[in-house]
Design a protein around this nucleic acid. Structure first.
Lengths: 155, 155
DNA sequence: CAATGTAGTCAATCAGATTGACCATTATAG
DNA sequence: CTATAATGGTCAATCTGATTGACTACATTG
């Protein structure tokens, strides 16, 4: 059966390998579409903005684990490419709220479809039931790690 | 059971989250031990040298996906910290073979133990049998991706 | 309303990487 | 055998994404 041959400590490496393989695949396809030179940080920014609608530059910086100056630059790039806009904050005059534009939203949807296809390819190999199981087991780990596991950049 | 609630495209994100969470944990612990400022590239270098004993600077560069100049610098750092040594190549007078020193090997062993502990923590949540299953399913994906999946840096 | 804290910007600098030029050695073609 | 091309590695200059530090404008606390 499955067991015996599992070397201790191999699991994390496999996680990295699979994520990296899927990531490469998606990146290649996005690059082939001739888009702006989006870097990982931009992708993580999209995903944060999708999850929350009250994101300021400082919040973005915190999420990405970089300084606010660097985060500001990321946001500025995305703004010039029309992926996001900086709107005045409703209550705080100092702050600005970062929000995806229609183009930005379309981009995330498109990327999500590609991620979905990568996932499908795994499902094709092991079957959807196993993938459901894996999904549940991964969720269990994330839930058990008490907030330590969040979708933050893997640099 | 497990299924129904799985949103398509969520799996890759969970992979990233878990890898990142485990990585953070290990990094924190290694950093707390007051070592040289080792970066991800150094870790991937260790792992390559552990797997092969004929690694040249160019091979390292190729593996890391960086230029040979950058790879040379990485190797030079590791050499000054006594983690690896550059030996003359047995047959090619131009080349040098990179190899782990005893200190380098000890470091990898230590890091592997920490990875093993992270893995154990997951096993504690879902049980070792499930982890065996996941291991097999991940292996299946890697094998099916025809060499595309290799342990290369996830930046 | 004074004092302190926070969001964001501008400017200078740093670190890790890249490009380009080069040398020494090896492999290939006449 | 050479003559030529290709390869491993280094040195130097440059680029880029980030950091630190100083500052302004607004907010919060007392």
């Amino acid at each position: 059966m499955t067991s015996s041959s599992r070397r201790r400590g191999e699991i994390p490496l496999l996680l990295a390998m699979i994520y990296r393989a899927m990531n490469d695949e998606i990146h290649d396809r996005l690059a082939a579409e001739g888009r702006e030179p989006l870097r990982p940080a931009h992708g993580y920014t999209f995903r944060l903005l999708l999850a929350r609608d009250d994101v300021t530059t400082v919040a973005l910086a915190d999420h990405l684990g970089i300084t606010k100056q660097a985060a500001s630059k990321i946001a500025a790039e995305l703004e010039t490419w029309d992926y996001l806009e900086r709107r005045p904050h409703p209550t705080d005059g100092r702050a600005r709220v970062l929000a995806l534009t229609a183009k930005g939203l379309a981009y995330v949807r498109h990327a999500d479809e590609l991620w979905g296809q990568a996932e499908d390819r795994w499902a094709a190999v092991i079957g959807p039931d196993r993938l459901d199981q894996i999904h549940a087991d991964m969720r269990a780990y994330v839930d058990a790690s008490g907030g330590r596991a969040a979708l933050r950049p893997v640099w």
